[in-house]
Design a binder for these strands. Sequence first.
DNA 1: TTACTATACGGAGGAAGCCTCCGATTTGTC
DNA 2: GACAAATCGGAGGCTTCCTCCGTATAGTAA
Lengths: 199, 199
Amino acid sequence: MTDAKPMRADARRNYERLLTEARRAFAERGVDASLEDVARSAGVGIGTLYRHFPTREDLVETLLRERFDTQAEKARELLLAEDPLKALYAWLVGFGETSAVYRGLTEMLADAFDDPESRLHASCAAMRDAASQLVDRAQAAGVFRTDVTVQELLLLLHGASWAGSHLPGEGGTERLMALVFTGLQTSEQRGQRAVSAPR
Amino acid sequence: MTDAKPMRADARRNYERLLTEARRAFAERGVDASLEDVARSAGVGIGTLYRHFPTREDLVETLLRERFDTQAEKARELLLAEDPLKALYAWLVGFGETSAVYRGLTEMLADAFDDPESRLHASCAAMRDAASQLVDRAQAAGVFRTDVTVQELLLLLHGASWAGSHLPGEGGTERLMALVFTGLQTSEQRGQRAVSAPR
DNA sequence: TTACTATACGGAGGAAGCCTCCGATTTGTC
DNA sequence: GACAAATCGGAGGCTTCCTCCGTATAGTAA
């Protein structure tokens, strides 16, 4: 919890530059972008990059941290929303967007889920825990299939988000996520389209 | 269509060895496995590998070709089955298995779908065409959502297959695929579980 | 068998990326 | 202004990618 000592001025400056360039590189090239390239663009030696971010995942995690925290916060808020089904879906949409920011991220996150050593693992677990209460509530309300675990749900929508990003044109992700989500509602609910109808 | 000249004996031998080792390497390490390593294991120079398979996709495509053909054939057979819904699902299960043989293949296939230049593109297109009639039939029978395109369906189940492979334990893929598929049936059909009930 | 040529082999080599290590530099402080 | 701790940066060892071309070999015809 303690943030240790404050960074030296040059360290802080380089840290920021690296994050900026990494964000750009990952957006353009996906999470497999060259780290040497990131360091170069940031006008910094490769050694400096590795000191600040010992692994690629450290870098990714730092970039996503804010989004992850936002998602966790959002889950807490949505727990107070009146419609459990809409609440869950609203949260999942945000989740899907986060999981699709960088090409290749989906795979990386899924791997992190299984690997407790991964720097991303804690964030993923936090995400799952944040979601679980929303899922529980929807299931308790009888509007969502009860034979689906949180992990399955997240992985599945993650997959739908990934699939959507490979569809030509815009809105593929939202569409496929809605399709899957609708299919996971209990039968009685389906006709009532709690989710904005796809297409 | 013509197979050109027969290969020279040594060429044929190396070709086979390369395929064998590639199959093993891709199974162990995923489609990103080192090609140098494949050549080494096959007891062949790296130049030989590249002559037979100019790109990684050429190699993957050759390995999958048989499965793809099998799937296309299966589609033709299933067109004669009496239950359109079960037929479609049966086909998709096979499709899911194929899309999950090697780690990382899902991404590669999805990219190939968008890229007409890719060696895998033709195979993917053939797959889609093979599936389309099965989908049409199920939709015409009123048991499957009509607002879903073949491409969306394939990509989505591809994603479900991918998601399932990241689930701990066995049977994740079948389970998630069944979950998605069930959700895409028309409401009337859902209660009747045309698909073996997940879990 | 021998000789010849189209075919195929194989690895050197340049480019790039990964990551580590440690001498050189800079910052903050007294 | 001087000193120690913190930080920098890139050389270097390793791996992989892919190309190019001199060398080796299979198949064939005499």
